[in-house]
Design a protein around this nucleic acid. Sequence first.
DNA 1: TTGAAAGCGCTAACAA
DNA 2: TTGTTAGCGCTTTCAA
Lengths: 347, 347
Amino acid sequence: MTAAERAVPGEGTPAKPPTIYDVAKAAGVAASTVSRALTRPGRVGAATAAHVRQVAADMGYKANPLGPGLRTGRTSMLALVVSDVTNPFYAEIIRGAQSAASEAGFILVLVNAQESGRIERENLERALPTIEGVILAGTRMSDSAIGVMAKQRPVVVLNRDVPGVPGVVLDNAEGARAAVEHLVSLGHRSLTYVAGPEASWVDGVRWHNLRQAAADLGCRATRTGPRAPTVAGGREAADALRGTPPTAIVAYNDQLAIGLMLALQNRGVRVPEDTSIVGFDNVYPAQIVTPGLTTVAAPLRAQGRAAANALLAARENPEAVAGKPRTLPVKLVVRGSTGPVRRTGDR
Amino acid sequence: MTAAERAVPGEGTPAKPPTIYDVAKAAGVAASTVSRALTRPGRVGAATAAHVRQVAADMGYKANPLGPGLRTGRTSMLALVVSDVTNPFYAEIIRGAQSAASEAGFILVLVNAQESGRIERENLERALPTIEGVILAGTRMSDSAIGVMAKQRPVVVLNRDVPGVPGVVLDNAEGARAAVEHLVSLGHRSLTYVAGPEASWVDGVRWHNLRQAAADLGCRATRTGPRAPTVAGGREAADALRGTPPTAIVAYNDQLAIGLMLALQNRGVRVPEDTSIVGFDNVYPAQIVTPGLTTVAAPLRAQGRAAANALLAARENPEAVAGKPRTLPVKLVVRGSTGPVRRTGDR
DNA sequence: TTGAAAGCGCTAACAA
DNA sequence: TTGTTAGCGCTTTCAA
């Protein structure tokens, strides 16, 4: 009986996938022998192994990871938590985590928080017993809640420094410096930072580094916000910028920068002639707006990969990965949204 | 002993989540009683039930779905297959499927094909034994391969008509008609359709309907392509459009339309003054480009939800859902990329 | 109303 | 080298 024959029995009745016992019976050996032949080829007679593998292949047998998972807790599943799947920021992170996971034979469970702490908690709790580790790409959990979870399962945090929990962050200092240097080289002597969410660790770091770099390079830096890290938030920020807008704006992220740019343009402000705008992340839409957005590019996909790999490493050896978060380099991508200062010394 | 105390025992040693036996022992009842108290409150004494629930809550007990999953195959997991997570087209679909799944107490496993049939097959095979059903949002599988899989697990296909497999499609006829009507009302008397991938079911349907609508409304329709359904594909299409571009272009999807628009603008073509452009889907970037893209909006999130719900329904009653795919309405969103014809009768 | 026991698919440990 | 057995966490019989 071939795989195809088994797969299409009556008609509507979904054919159950074959179990290891089906294979064992068909091959005339014990189930443990099948298991060994498939997972530990060395520990079984060559002829038997070949035969078993042949039979298993014919039947289309796939070991159900739930079986051993029950014993060992090894389900070959990882969870990735994002605050909103719809946010392009997560797209490349998801992709990176996905491919690293699947290369290691793992399945990726996507937990979408839908920007709600409650939904995040519910979904994560539901997934938790099933999975072997968690990547927190965007979360509303507190540091202490993360710490508690990290006691139960390996956890890797992205773009956040949670003491005692391994993390992958970006070189925000370098990014801020590059952005300011670029603006200064264009003749800008002051800039306005449009802040993101108040609670955001990254926001604090970015503003700190920006101010630092500005001070070092003789540039005045002011801060406005906080705003939601979205296009809508950017539009609001533009509305709040009454009168003549600043000559240079650095936004918390690309989404905010794009909203800002669109709203300012709508108001008749020319970008970059009147106002230069810089974002962070180099999200996909940044290259699609007109003019293209100058931005501090984050290696998003690499970040996703790094997170998944760190998790897999933590699974093997929980002690090894703790400590300082891993820092990934960033680089400034210059597009059309930044240009030389035109106006001189306005307020 | 409270949940917190159990959660943080030694230090580094990850605390195992409590099993039903832990709860049973703590509550002084049999495991089966715990199970009943938690899942079938009616079939257990009121006092016992309350007590057990209290103890379970204190210990932070969550039933591990893998246990019963082993018996019944009910793992409370659904898989969603997309050809590329990075594609904004899938963002809202993922979100819709995710929320419908999690409302039903299901976990969503994300299978990313990375535009490769091989990777898709590997990832899906790995996930298959674990999951209860599959949503194929974007797949390279053949109709027959899908049919075979549908015999083993409930399957729902998006934007494709696979005989015998439940599906959720868009009202492409209505969409095409709306697009053509809009263009005709602006004075356009001819349009060019830039086709998407050759193998795409949707592409065929869109072109067919477009031609039909154009014929009905006295408009000439020509076709060019096929192109990759991406911004890059759109740029290539623009390059291939030598000489004066058509006065009206309808693209296979928004991505293609955006690439087309950016490349044409780059070449000095004004949109919509020289050329009007219409896309399909109303993907997020469509509202961010300048001018905004006129597009046939698909209820992407609703589609994701509908697919997940159809899958859950199929799980209960496999026979009920087969038959004609469910059709979701679309509507034209008019933005700045379309305008009245300026030039007259150029070839 | 409650408890005891069996079994889901698999593999590790023990026997032969 | 191979087979037998036990047990992972849970629910569902079957008994009490």
